[in-house]
């Protein structure tokens, strides 16, 4: 009997230990600490509705398209629709009322309108340069010049 029960007790005990560990060493999603950990030291981070593969809002999609256009790959994207705490938390963190939100080099850059404007006026190329990302548009320009 004892032999039978032992593994069950052990399993239950270890689960509790695991839970306590998680609670102690992880911070609540959407907290300042959590968002700091998501954006600090990262080149490009996007908080959006849906995923880059399947955006669930036109504005989030526009940001994804702009980044694609500049050849930015491997940026981290966080789906705020999957986590209500994160959705609220990111708005408090930046004091910005809307999603999507883009961070470059750990700094909040803006939402869709600002990304679009920066894309148009060339500022985005400069911002990406600051985090050692060479915009794909620069290569295209060179190519065009050669042809011309």
């Amino acid at each position: 009997m004892i032999r039978l029960l032992k593994p069950i007790f052990f399993e239950a005990a270890s689960k509790n230990v695991f839970r306590t560990m998680v609670a102690r060493y992880s911070v609540a999603t959407g907290s300042k600490e959590h968002i700091d950990s998501l954006v600090k030291g990262k080149k490009v981070v996007v908080f959006m509705k849906g995923t880059p593969e399947a955006p669930r809002c036109g504005f989030s999609n526009a940001v994804v398209q702009i980044l694609n256009f500049h050849g930015v790959e491997n940026y981290s994207a966080h789906d705020v629709l999957a986590d209500e705490n994160l959705r609220k938390g990111i708005k408090d963190y930046t004091n910005w009322p809307t999603i999507p939100q883009v961070f470059i080099g750990g700094e909040f850059v803006g939402g869709c309108d600002i990304m679009l404007e920066m894309h148009k006026n060339g500022e985005l190329i400069e911002e990406l340069k600051k985090v050692d990302i060479k915009s794909a548009l620069l290569d295209q320009e060179k190519g065009n010049k050669k042809e011309g």
């Binding site: 504005f59 910005w96 809307t98 803006g110 939402g111 600002i114 404007e117 920066m118």
Partner: peptide, 22 residues
């Protein structure tokens, strides 16, 4: 640009709670 948008967002803070896209 960011500061300009923040000015507008602050001026319309109450309204933006109910507006889906601005």
């Amino acid at each position: 640009l960011l500061q300009r948008h923040r000015l507008v967002n602050t001026a319309l803070a109450e309204e933006l709670k109910n507006i889906h896209a601005f």
